[in-house]
């Protein structure tokens, strides 16, 4: 009697799974179709416009759908104007790299200690602190930038505080093309996106491992350097990527806090050319450039998260 009871599930389960095989594709189909139509196809349209023609009269872009007939002249125009004598786009690209690097380093410098404290040492106050850390997520980015516009105006609080209530005359024009202000704005805007993944990683860190390292004679620093850091290296990388990638396409922070071409980033190049007649192809070319630069980090991030899912399941 016992044998068929054990054998039965596997025998009946197999045909059931077979029957179910049509269900899962049917569930996934709307999402797949949506992603193909509204995600993959638009990216292809960008290519068709970058390598397409421009209407000689109206200066509107004419997409060329056949890759064989693609004309690289618009893309070449952008590439040849990055370096050299007519390198009009070069400074903004270099600035983007510098701003993103500086801002994400500062983000990490702030985010790591905060996430470490809240995840591992805050004890009973953890829930409250975490709620406060998450709060900036639900405050519109524009509102947070606008808050700084208020503070940094010529008669704003920052200048008032710096002049100690009229003791000195401090009138710094913070909002007219100061690179430092834009970098700090980027840090302010994106640091919550770094803290949360770091918190999640540090929260999962194995406590027995750290205790073992101390028991085996490591002091505070070498235990941190040789156990904690290696254990959370993937987390740190993922957190840095999650902040760097949106920063690459940022143009509004510079617009809000400086509104000057002196702090223009590649996002501003896209934003300025996208509505300009005859320069739509340029905007597309910059979109492609950012996409190519972001591609490797994005692939790394996707691989890391997929691998984690496999381990989890």
């Amino acid at each position: 009697m016992a044998v068929p009871v054990i054998a039965a599930p596997s025998q009946t389960a197999a045909p059931r799974r077979e029957r179910a095989s049509g269900l899962w594709p049917a569930l996934a189909a709307p999402g797949i179709v949506w992603l193909l139509l509204c995600f993959v196809f638009p990216l292809y349209v960008v290519l068709c416009i970058v390598f397409g023609q421009v209407d000689p009269l109206f200066r509107t872009p004419i997409p060329v759908w056949n890759p064989v007939q693609w004309d690289p002249s618009q893309f070449n125009y952008v590439l040849t104007h990055i370096v050299g004598a007519d390198g009009i786009f070069g400074p903004a690209l270099v600035r983007t790299a510098v701003f993103v690097f500086a801002a994400s380093s500062l983000c990490l410098l702030i985010a790591f200690p905060v996430a470490y404290y809240v995840a591992r040492l805050s004890g009973r106050r953890k829930g409250l602190l975490l709620a406060l850390l998450i709060a900036p997520f639900w405050i519109s980015y524009m509102m947070r930038m606008f808050a700084w516009v208020n503070l940094l105006q010529n008669d704003g609080i920052v200048n008032k505080v710096l002049s100690f209530g009229g003791l000195f005359t401090m009138h710094v024009d913070w909002l007219t093309g100061q690179p430092v202000v834009v970098i700090l704005g980027l840090v302010y805007g994106y640091v919550p996106y770094m803290i949360l993944p770091l918190y999640a990683g540090l929260d999962r860190l194995s406590q027995p491992m750290l205790e073992a390292s101390r028991d085996l004679g490591a002091d505070r620093f070498s235990s941190f350097w040789r156990v904690t850091l290696p254990l959370c290296r993937p987390t740190i990388l993922a957190a840095v990527l999650l902040t760097c990638l949106p920063m690459l396409g940022d143009y509004f922070t510079s617009d809000m806090l400086s509104a000057s071409p002196k702090t223009a980033m590649v996002g501003n190049l896209i934003n300025d050319s996208v509505h300009a007649p005859g320069r739509t192809g340029q905007a597309g070319a910059f979109v492609m450039l950012v996409f190519l630069v972001a591609l490797l980090p994005m692939l790394y991030y996707i691989r890391a998260t997929s691998r984690r899912d496999e381990v989890a399941s």
Binding site: V46, G249, D250, V290, F291, A294
Partner: peptide
Amino acid sequence: PEVLLAVA
């Protein structure tokens, strides 16, 4: 980056 999807 969101701006890429928006422009596309």
